[in-house]
């Protein structure tokens, strides 16, 4: 029987090859930052390994619980759905725990991992119907490595094609160091 870890590594390799766009942009400050993926087994990805995965790009614009808007910025990162897949995948009722070095945790349903089930707002913070959204772990903001104060090296960001779509910032976990699939 093929070990699960080998399957996962092959899957990641396939994703990298499929992307056809190896990003070798250095982010020297974050070389020691690792991301733990926990599913059926646990594995650790280095920052360069994460940057080598197929990337998604879009605009991210968040708002805090008291209405402070942040953005819009252009973000680039690895889709959370790909990381969940690399962790062994998840069933529809499973949950994904995204947690950070500072002790913050937010929980996502699988529909949210796919970019569904979020509330979106216009510039006046009036609710609008959500356009297509993607959830990524961003490592790049406006073409530069994501600054630490902005949640770098890895921050969960909800992106869209349009710069004027605002999403709730509570799920924008800063300093992400662990993604864990919780079986239900």
């Amino acid at each position: 029987m093929i070990p699960v870890r080998r399957i996962i590594l092959v899957l990641i390799g396939a994703l990298i090859l499929a992307s056809g766009c190896l990003d070798t942009t250095p982010a020297d400050d974050y070389q020691d930052w690792n991301l733990t993926l926990a599913g059926d087994e646990e594995m650790v990805l280095t920052h360069p390994e994460i940057r080598a995965l197929p990337a998604a790009e879009g605009y991210g614009y968040s708002v805090s619980t008291v209405g402070i808007k942040h953005g819009p910025n252009r973000y680039r990162g690895v889709p959370l759905a790909d990381l969940v897949l690399a962790a062994g995948g998840a069933g529809e009722d499973d949950l994904v725990y995204v947690s950070a070095e500072d002790g913050y945790l937010w929980v996502f349903g699988m529909d949210q991992v796919r970019g569904e089930g979020f509330f979106t707002f216009d510039e006046n913070l009036k609710e609008v119907a959500p356009p297509p959204l993607r959830v990524i772990l961003a490592y790049e903001q406006d073409g530069s490595p994501l600054p630490f104060n902005e949640g770098g090296p890895l921050r969960l960001v909800i992106i869209t094609e349009s710069p004027d779509v605002i999403t709730e910032g509570s799920s924008w976990v800063k300093w992400v160091d662990r993604v864990e699939v919780q079986r239900r």
Binding site: T65, V66, F119, L125, K126, E168, S170
Partner: peptide, 16 residues
């Protein structure tokens, strides 16, 4: 359920 009070006020205003 919304993240904070201001979003509830907005929903109230909009009739949501």
């Amino acid at each position: 359920i919304r993240d904070g009070s201001i979003y509830l006020l907005s929903l109230l205003d909009a009739g949501g």
